[in-house]
Design a binder for these strands. Structure first.
Length: 424
RNA sequence: GGAGAGGUGGCUGAGCGGUUUAAAGCGGCGGUCUUGAAAACCGUUGAAGGGUGAAACCUUCCGGGGGUUCGAAUCCCUCCCUCUCCGCCA
């Protein structure tokens, strides 16, 4: 959520900024609603003040043993007027909040112009697309004889799920372990385990609700729970409604969870294979930072994700997302894209976002800044370090040999009992 | 699932229809004293919003929501959460 004060004092400026995302906001409607809010709020507070004062004098009169009936008669009308005003104020504030919750974050100045994925800008490249002296297969073909079974998953559940058996299942687990160990052991993150279902308040805090409910799996229950679409939700919500002491910042968490996404808007896209699933494993990095440190933290966090790719020897490039492609809550996002020989293209494997105070305001997540009189909003960041399912694909496709075996990357061998090849 | 006890400011905790704008302690901040620190003592210290050039000042907030009342932390309804005992169970 953006600062409501920005809307009151700098509406035109905000509108101009949002136009970069290709978004037009109803300035006149907002200004009119805001004017009414102010009017009704002042009126309500005056009535409340009168009620409080009168009630107090009734109490005092009663204590003196006087007859309070005349005083009661004087304010008989007040209750109705006040109730009416309070109702209207509630209604207006609800409308204002609904509008605000629907408006995305302001973009960092460094975010390039553009409307779609096409306009994202490559800012670095590591490694070269893997070369083969045979025609490389995709992970579906490679996986079939190794225990990657989409038909079994379709029988158990439906489309967009997978069953992994034997060494492939173990390879996925090895990747998870390797990522967790690297981030906690070398990059200074604390490993954390969290619920895989969350309540609506948590999703509202990180920005998935109310706008993107159709992307989520909802548990039928009262009140409803939701399957997490990413560990970002439970981990970032740890600081919801909290005031964090200055000396405990930054908070750096690494968390492995399954992620559940309905992929409501993706019908027909990536329908084959493990690229886009309703359930996938991810190792997530989440950071809670002082505002002055957050920009540097974003660079560092992205670098931490890159290091995983480099240790695994997987070629990738770093993109900065353009205005139109940057997510709702993010001020600036880097995507890491890994080379997939099966598709002869780079595909997203990590997304590292800087939210500034956008999530923190929704979360009421603050810290005690010693230089300030009052608690201030923290900055939140997160990034995949990495999406495990897609990493599994990348390892399979980049490390395949002509016989369809998968060579095990050096860094994973300790996790696979020294195994050199999968398959064969 | 059954029975009971609770949820109060950064933390602990009193208050259980009006007599201060939630007592007190801890912690934080400032000061006195000290070469410096500790201790002691004195003062100060919740959050959000409105309002002003800045103040003053006003409103709201005692788990969430609703109700009773001139007036609710306090009474009623409902939901959530925590703890204890019983039952069930990985």
């Amino acid at each position: 959520m953006l600062d409501p004060r920005l809307f009151r004092t700098n509406l035109e400026e905000v509108a101009a900024q949002l136009a970069r995302r290709g978004l037009e906001i109803d300035q006149a409607g907002f200004a009119a609603l805001e004017a009414r809010r102010k009017d009704i709020q002042v009126q309500t507070q005056n009535l409340q003040n009168e009620r409080n004062t009168r009630s107090k004098s009734i109490g005092q009169a009663k204590a003196r043993g006087e007859d309070i009936q005349p005083l009661l008669d004087e304010i008989s009308h007040l209750g109705e007027d006040l109730k009416h005003c309070e109702r209207e104020l509630d209604e207006i504030q609800l409308q204002l909040e609904e509008r605000l919750l629907d408006i995305p974050n302001l973009l960092d100045l460094e975010v390039p112009e553009g409307l779609s994925e096409e306009d994202n800008v490559e800012i670095k490249r590591w490694g070269e697309p893997t070369r083969f002296d045979f025609s490389p297969k995709d992970h579906i073909e490679l996986g079939a004889p190794l225990g990657m079974d989409f038909e079994a998953a379709a029988k158990l559940t439906g489309a967009r799920f997978v069953v992994l058996q034997g060494s492939l299942a173990r390879l996925q687990r090895a990747l998870i372990q390797f990522m967790l160990d690297t981030h906690s052991g070398e990059h200074g993150y604390s490993e954390i385990y969290v619920p895989f279902m969350v309540n609506a308040d948590s999703l509202k805090g990180t920005g998935q609700l109310p706008k993107f409910e159709e992307d989520l799996f909802k548990i039928v229950r009262e009140p409803p729970y939701y399957l997490i679409p990413t560990a970002e939700v439970p981990v970032t919500n740890l600081v919801r409604d909290e005031i964090v002491e200055a000396e405990s910042l930054p908070l750096k968490f690494v968390c492995h969870t399954p992620c559940f996404r309905s992929e409501a808007g993706s019908a027909g896209r990536d329908t084959r294979g493990m690229i886009r699933q309703h359930q996938f494993e991810k190792v997530e990095l989440v950071r809670i930072e002082r505002p002055e440190d957050s920009a540097a933290a974003h660079e560092e966090l992205t670098r931490h994700a890159e290091i995983i790719l480099e240790k695994l020897g997987l070629p990738y490039r770093r993109m900065v997302l353009c205005a139109g492609d940057t997510g709702f809550s993010s001020a600036k996002t880097y995507d890491l894209e890994v080379w997939l020989p099966g598709q002869q293209t780079y595909r997203e494997i990590s997304s590292c976002s800087h939210f500034r105070d956008f999530q923190a305001r929704r979360l009421r997540a603050r810290w005690r800044n010693p230089a300030a009189a009052k608690p201030e909003l923290v900055h939140t960041l997160n990034g995949s370090g990495l999406a495990v399912g897609r990493t599994l694909i990348a390892v399979m496709e980049n490390y395949q040999d002509e016989q369809g075996r998968i060579r095990v990357p050096e860094v994973l061998k300790p996790y696979l009992g020294g195994l050199n090849f999968i398959g064969g």
